[in-house]
């Protein structure tokens, strides 16, 4: 049943490296990660790769397989023909530590900048009540396994590293949307979504959605609804007219992005 597959694996550190050719045995039912482990065990003991669960749930084994960002443990060898050469590279958007292992700390920095859940201070712990229909939307986003394939694929930073400071990426704009849709959250993050987290950079080309292994509809259910909320605050002609006529108080409670003073990207 087994066959020898041709693999080209990017090897190197600190950014410089090259694709190296290998021939590795493949058995029935295996995934790309299995074959890379065999490569590591039999031919390239020093091959660095990250993995943990082998079940598509830890988000560690993100890589690019034939140019497509995917999880190594969820990509079956049976989708490739035995004669095909598989090219395996690290995620291109993040700095390489070694071989297929990248430094994804960009994502942790962005995560920390988002003002966290802000409930009504007068409601005491234990008093929150929520109905299922109120949390359905957030629960879709909560399926995220933090593999950062979406962050890696988004062309806003993948092709333009200079946008890294201004753009939080789909994963974290989705976090902003999740809090905005939370029935017990009182903060208004619409301004900072646009100004600090760069929602306007997203041109809804849906590559984040295309690569998400959890099949979260990031663009349709988080980014576009968030763009609509921003439009409602900043650009809606009827809302603008209504605010002129009714003199309703401007939305309150706009928090500020948490920007660490030191070590911020410039």
């Amino acid at each position: 049943m087994g066959y020898k597959a041709k693999f080209r694996v990017w090897r190197g550190d600190a950014g410089t490296g090259a694709l190296q050719d290998y021939e590795v045995e493949v058995n029935e039912g295996e995934v790309v990660l299995d074959v890379l482990h065999r490569l590591q065990a039999t031919q390239a003991n020093d091959l660095a790769l990250r993995w943990n669960c082998k079940a598509g749930k830890c988000g560690s084994c993100s890589m690019e397989i034939n140019g497509r960002p995917r999880l190594g443990c969820m990509t079956r060898m049976s989708v490739f023909s035995p004669s095909e050469t598989l090219t395996i590279t690290p995620m291109r958007t993040f700095p390489v530590i070694r071989d297929l292992v990248t430094d994804v700390s960009f994502n942790y920095e962005k995560a920390r900048q988002i003002p966290s859940f802000t409930p009504d201070a007068s409601v005491k712990p234990g008093e929150f009540r929520m109905m299922q229909q109120d949390v359905n939307r957030s629960q879709e986003f909560r399926k995220c396994i933090e593999c950062y394939l979406c962050q890696n694929t988004c062309h806003v930073i993948r092709d333009h590293a200079e946008n890294e400071a201004a753009f939080a990426g789909p994963r974290f704009l989705m976090r902003v949307a999740e809090l905005e849709m939370h029935p017990a959250d009182t903060a208004d993050r619409r301004d900072i979504a646009q100004e600090d987290f760069g929602l306007g950079y997203c041109n809804i080309t849906k590559c984040c959605t295309e690569v998400c292994p959890e099949h979260i509809k990031i663009t349709d259910n988080a980014l576009i609804p968030m763009k609509e909320r921003v439009a409602g605050r900043k650009y809606d002609p009827l809302v603008w007219l209504g605010s002129k006529i009714s003199r309703r108080p401007k939305s309150e409670g706009t928090p500020v992005a948490v920007r660490p003073a030191a070590k911020d990207a410039t």
């Binding site: 600190a14 950014g15 990248t102």
Partner: peptide
């Protein structure tokens, strides 16, 4: 050495 992204010159490695 400072870490940088993998230097891959190909515009894409996609084959589809």
């Amino acid at each position: 050495p400072p870490r940088t992204r993998a230097q891959i010159s190909e515009r894409t490695l996609r084959k589809d």
